[in-house]
Design a protein around this nucleic acid. Sequence first.
DNA 1: TGGGATCGATAGCTCCGGCATATCGTTGCC
DNA 2: GGCAACGATATGCCGGAGCTATCGATCCCA
Lengths: 295, 295
Amino acid sequence: MELRHLRYFVAVAEELHFGRAAQRLGIRQPPLSQQIKALEADLGVSLFDRDSRKVRLTAAGEALFPAARDLLDAARSAERATRRAGRGEAGELTLGFVGSATNLLLPQALRGFRQRYPRITLRLRELTTTQQVHALKDGLLDVGLLRPPLLGAEADGLHVQPVTAERLVAVLQDDHALARQRLVAAADLAEEPFVLFPRALGPGLHDQILRYCAEAGFTPVVAQEAVQMQTVVALVAGGLGVSFVPSSVARTRRPGAVFRPLRPQTRVVHLAVAHRADTTNPVVGNFISAVIAAG
Amino acid sequence: MELRHLRYFVAVAEELHFGRAAQRLGIRQPPLSQQIKALEADLGVSLFDRDSRKVRLTAAGEALFPAARDLLDAARSAERATRRAGRGEAGELTLGFVGSATNLLLPQALRGFRQRYPRITLRLRELTTTQQVHALKDGLLDVGLLRPPLLGAEADGLHVQPVTAERLVAVLQDDHALARQRLVAAADLAEEPFVLFPRALGPGLHDQILRYCAEAGFTPVVAQEAVQMQTVVALVAGGLGVSFVPSSVARTRRPGAVFRPLRPQTRVVHLAVAHRADTTNPVVGNFISAVIAAG
DNA sequence: TGGGATCGATAGCTCCGGCATATCGTTGCC
DNA sequence: GGCAACGATATGCCGGAGCTATCGATCCCA
């Protein structure tokens, strides 16, 4: 049995007239009669009672009719769904993101994407940069929003594309002596205890910070570690030390902490979208476009 | 798109290996590759990522895979259901029956039929013989259990087949003078008021009763009409008259009424199964076999 | 590092079958 | 009784589904 047989059968069952059904199908009447006959032979059942005057469904035909319609409908909708999936308009996307992307980039990107592609089911996972790198390579994640740079082998097999660019700023307790200055000189922080995220969470950015300190002539003493940028700020506000965070983190004000531009300026730090270089999932491309539009 | 494409697609998606999938399908690998390619072209979407080393589903392929399986399952079950319907093992049957068939024949026939053909949905309608004749001709009924004979034009286009044979017996109030006799002579009832069903409900049987009375030398005076045989017996028990009923009615004893064989014996009366002569519904034949087995 | 093995794609051929036209046989109707 | 309507049948053509042979790429291993 093929869908052709069902298409022909449904046409005849609806018209109850071979000639008109054939016309509707864009074929001639004899091949239609043949195909119906072939279907009947295949099923071992006669589907129509027909004499030269009228055509009627048999009991078996009555049984097949609704089932055949449903099958054809289901086939059509499967086709549509597949095409949509092929255009990246339907399906699923598992997205990783670092906590600091939730300030601005992630909500804007999600808003744009959901509006344009409402049929995509999004699964969101807050993960560190390092976790995202592994999850991307393991196929657990389709796209990651992370903090480059990725070190050496980390980037193998991944496409990483920067989306935002910002500088690091200093975070100080609000009653800190340096908080009265408009800018903070990095060298002035040499003796301060630091609050920083563990290197393992994002070695690229971590190294970049240490390098910056080194250029300012000191090695920061990490008094306290924290995973989230928000936590870093909270700990600074609590008097546990000072820190550097991307300037976008300063957008969410927190009592007890102040943000100050650094002198010299740090190199720009990015948020980037990453995905496997060998992905063919068109949803990935569509999502990345949305992120770039939001960035 | 044809079911063939889906069958091939599912095989490849399950095996993730064109060679093995082709083997499972009983064809060679090149035509399988061709058909998959044709399906992809038809859908305008690529379904597999494949190099000469490994085969993977694309996002579109992931979308199609479960839908294709479901479609193939649905097609198989539609085939089975159609074949069953063709053998009269599935579908619906609308059955008419006269009240007096419920004594013995109907329950036995239903038990046997439901056991053998559990997938048939039965719709039961208690109707008089005349109503069944019309409903059969109008296609509202597939089969009728009725009381022949059918008069002249009534039988046109119908097949009627007797199932049971019995004699009429007299029904008397239990304190009736004649109730003390083992047999009742018809002529002795000449002056009695009769309880009978209206002629319109079953003219054949009605005429047969009147003819029997005429042969016994009288014309019964109908003092009371009743539609159901059970009601006839109840009215007789209530003292409204005497009557004749098929002997099977005597199986359900009713206080106040007694049943006595008649002399001379009446001609046999039947319960019969009737259906349109032009029906092709195999369920009808199966049901009739069950009725005959029960009769 | 090169040769063999594996695997999907391609080329070229065959043949079945789906569709075409022409015609038949039956039935209902004026 | 002749015509019109309709499905079935006869016959031929052509596309395409499947075959064999082969290619090209990749992986493995000595």
